[in-house]
Computed example of a mutant assay.
Amino acid sequence: MKKILLLLANGFEAYEASVFTDVFDWNREEGDGSTQLVTCGVREKLMCTGHLTVLPELLASQADATGFDALAIPGGYESYGFYEDAYSEDFLSVIQTFNRAEKRIAAVCVGALPLGKSGVLRGRQGTTYHLNNGYRQRQLAAFGVNVVNRPLVVDGNIITCSAPASALDVAFKLLELLTSPANCSHIKHLMGF
């Protein structure tokens, strides 16, 4: 069983998290059945965009990379407190631990910014939200990241994307890397892509 830790910050975007829950649930039910997603946060109760409440299964302080194959991080809204959680020591520690263990890490949109802050993207290629005159891309570059203006960037074990529009591409790429290209194509077909 391939286990994916979905690391959530308060104020995460519901859509960006749902691409991982949907793709990996489709795989569990209709694909090769080899994936399991576990939610995680720095607090016991999270409020995401749309004011949906989420109760993560694990706290970040309990997350152990040895029990997982990949880490997934959706972006979020600053006005909802996203960066307070995403830049916290516990959140960044999870990222660093997964990277040291050479596990796959997939981040959507501004979910790349805590990767940058954690240091795991320093000197590597990545991308983040590209609109608003490149403000978020400049923030990512300030962490020592070589920002590439593409919808999807893969550098070693890390996948980043430039906007919510690329979120499904990230989830499918992670599925492909954890299972197989054939299985990923099968799930895409069943989901109508």
Rank of each mutant, 00 (worst) to 15 (best):
L55S: 11
Y135D: 14
N27F: 02
F98N: 12
A182S: 14
L71P: 06
L175F: 09
A101F: 03
K3D: 04
A163T: 08
V54A: 13
T97K: 14
E44S: 13
Y83H: 07
G76D: 09
D169E: 15
A171T: 11
Y83N: 09
E16N: 04
N133T: 10
S162A: 11
T49E: 15
G67S: 08
R138C: 04
Q139T: 03
R150A: 14
F68M: 13
S79T: 13
A171Y: 08
A17W: 04
S18A: 14
T53F: 12
I159D: 00
A9Q: 08
A86V: 12
R138H: 06
L131W: 10
L121G: 01
F20A: 10
Q36E: 08
T127F: 00
F24Y: 02
L168D: 11
L58P: 05
L131F: 14
F82I: 06
A17V: 03
A112D: 03
S79M: 12
K2R: 13
E78D: 15
L59G: 15
K2M: 11
Q139V: 09
A72I: 02
A107K: 03
G119T: 04
L140Q: 01
D155H: 00
R124T: 04
S185D: 15
S34R: 06
Q139K: 05
A17R: 08
H51A: 15
T127M: 01
D85G: 13
V42Y: 05
F98P: 07
A72M: 07
K103R: 14
L58E: 07
Q139W: 01
A9S: 13
T97R: 08
I4L: 11
H189E: 05
P56W: 05
Q137I: 03
Y135P: 03
I187R: 02
I4A: 05
T49R: 12
A63C: 10
E78F: 05
F193Q: 13
D90I: 06
L71K: 10
A182V: 13
V23T: 12
A163H: 07
T127C: 01
Y80V: 11
A72C: 04
Q125T: 00
I187M: 01
V120K: 02
V153K: 01
K188Y: 04
A163S: 15
A171G: 09
E78M: 06
A112V: 05
C109R: 04
P151S: 12
R100N: 15
L140F: 01
A167H: 04
G11F: 07
T160Q: 04
A141V: 01
C48A: 12
P164H: 06
T160W: 00
